[in-house]
Write a protein that binds this DNA or RNA. Structure first.
Lengths: 216, 216
DNA sequence: GGTGTAAATGGACGACTGTCCATTTACAGT
DNA sequence: ACTGTAAATGGACAGTCGTCCATTTACACC
């Protein structure tokens, strides 16, 4: 068998350390995440971090990688169940709704994400994962926008799609920040509505929200 | 005289500690900002932090307060020179341009801001200053939007203005994040253009950018 | 100039940090 | 059941953390 009782135990302990580290970051922040805290939460012994990761720094790198994986998995799951053969506007809507859903955007995930990013300039790896995540989301949303602006015969569909993609990502980023600072009063529906109101104004034929454009 | 040589020296040292602390946060992040580092940068002696602030925690609180003041001052200065008797759309434009200008948004300021906010949930004071800053910006931008949507006779001008204000702030927030992660490749003009493109789509009569709306 | 008082110094202090290794434990293969 | 090997333990270790205070310095007032 490829999975010994040993290997299973090893892998389980490895993951326990990563999860404990992420819990720690979410609750206490980067500054207060110590080896002792992580060990205490995992219930394992002190030497495990050095054994599995060769030090705290490498553990944190594994933690950011895992955190990124969790984000992708949740996003993919939601997008898959939304259907991939939908219209461009439906795909964009699904992405926005997924990115702002409770499964992807919650207290734990947002705190971890901002804690890591607050230290991005000190750790190459964090920047790398941050960029990868951003690029992937950008590509996912750029294609449908490009299709839309080609369809309506825009002068420079690629340019417009690029700008609108950039703006839409910035909008979602801002909504994440809102959630970080006020998780209790945050209104997911309102956040979606505002994003769609902006998109409806930019392409009323595709996101036909009544009253999106109040002027003109 | 109200300002002794002593008082001046005292105040100068106090500020030196705050500035050193902010430099530290900007360069090393919250996690690596230690008393020793701050002292080293300020050139003062170890006991000064306890003497002036009664501990590191209080010094950091003073630092976030000072950082917030710097933001307001720079923003006010730019808005004042833009003129306050301008049209609603000109005022909004001035706010957006100021918030994305080099004076307000630079490597130091953005790193400090995100470092503090990454730990917001641990420190009541940080959340307080973050909220205050956000509220102030929101009010500054809400009024002109309200004027615009009243002027065009929107069904629910207050509601629309609220949503558009929310979205515009989120957009700017997203642009700040872009700058944090890629200060070298960040394009201020492009960032402004994208914000205005979105606003032009929402109210074409007021932000008449050619080609803002490609569809409809 | 002498004196009182506040500012400033810098080292001592215990607590805690992350690393690492000698030891123990437990599973896999024979 | 025995043995070899990898996993896991938990304490020792040097280094750094933030706090605090006895001492020195320097200014303001008389």
């Amino acid at each position: 068998m490829t999975q010994n009782k040993r290997d299973i135990s090893r892998e389980r302990n490895r993951m326990a350390l990563i999860e404990a580290a992420l819990d720690c970051v979410a609750e206490l922040g980067m500054a207060n995440t110590s080896v002792s805290e992580i060990i205490g939460r995992s219930g394992l012994s002190r030497g495990m971090i050095h054994l599995h990761f060769n030090g705290k720094a490498k553990l944190m790198e594994a933690a950011i990688a895992h955190s990124s994986d969790l984000y992708y998995e949740a996003l993919d799951r939601l997008l898959e169940q939304a259907g991939s053969d939908a219209s461009p506007q439906a795909r964009i809507e699904a992405i926005v709704r997924s990115d702002l859903s409770a499964e992807v955007l919650n207290t734990r995930s947002v705190r971890i994400w901002y804690a890591f990013r607050g230290e991005a300039h000190n750790h190459e790896i964090i920047r790398l994962y941050s960029d990868t995540r951003h690029d992937r989301l950008r590509k996912l949303i750029y294609q449908p926008f490009l299709a839309i602006f080609r369809e309506v015969g825009a002068d420079d569909p690629a340019g417009v799609a690029r700008d609108v993609t950039h703006g839409t990502l910035a909008l979602m980023e801002g909504m994440w920040t809102d959630f970080l600072l006020h998780p209790d009063s945050f209104d997911r529906d309102a956040a979606c509505r505002i994003v769609f109101r902006f998109l409806a104004a930019l392409c009323p034929q595709h996101f036909d929200l009544p009253g999106a454009r109040e002027d003109g």
